[in-house]
């Protein structure tokens, strides 16, 4: 069938359909995104209060093994925004971070609204602690 032989809505009606379809797609995108964030699917935030409490700063401090494991988690979960060695990318340079280990751990768990997603749903409590230990080890380097 040649394009000329096609029949369809008038230009005005087509414009209305296109506008409604476009707004619907945008609405669905925002709606699904809000649902995913709320459900903690993907890298979306998870209510931290519903998760078991965990130690954020062991008395004996993180071991070299923890830091090495944290480096692996960092490469998988964080480097896309913070750069391969935490030197910055989408997100700030972590070498210049003024935050302490407890604060780093909290941010990895809860995220920063509007800037960084929470990772409590993506990383186990141990992995969060290891990642925080690695990030903490970057400071000042």
């Amino acid at each position: 069938m040649s394009p000329e032989a096609r029949t369809g809505p008038s230009e005005g009606r087509a414009a209305l359909i296109a506008a409604v379809a476009s707004l619907t797609i945008l609405g669905l995108t925002f709606g699904v995104s809000a649902l995913m964030r709320g459900a903690g699917i993907g890298a979306g935030p998870t209510p931290i209060a519903s998760r078991p409490a965990e130690p954020t700063s062991p008395a004996d401090g993180p071991s070299a093994v923890d830091i090495a494991a944290g480096k692996t988690h960092f490469a998988e979960q964080c480097s896309s925004c913070h750069g391969d060695a935490g030197a910055g990318g989408y997100a700030p340079n972590l070498h210049k971070s003024p935050l302490d280990l407890a604060r780093i751990t909290a941010i990895i768990q809860k995220g920063v609204p509007g800037k960084m997603p929470a990772f409590a749903s993506k990383l186990s409590p141990a992995a969060v602690s290891q990642t925080a230990a690695y990030v903490d080890s970057l400071r000042g380097h």
Partner: peptide, 13 residues
């Protein structure tokens, strides 16, 4: 893009 930023549709900065 949405999967990179954890389904954040607005954000800041």
């Amino acid at each position: 893009g949405l999967l990179v930023v954890g389904w954040e549709t607005l954000g800041s900065g």
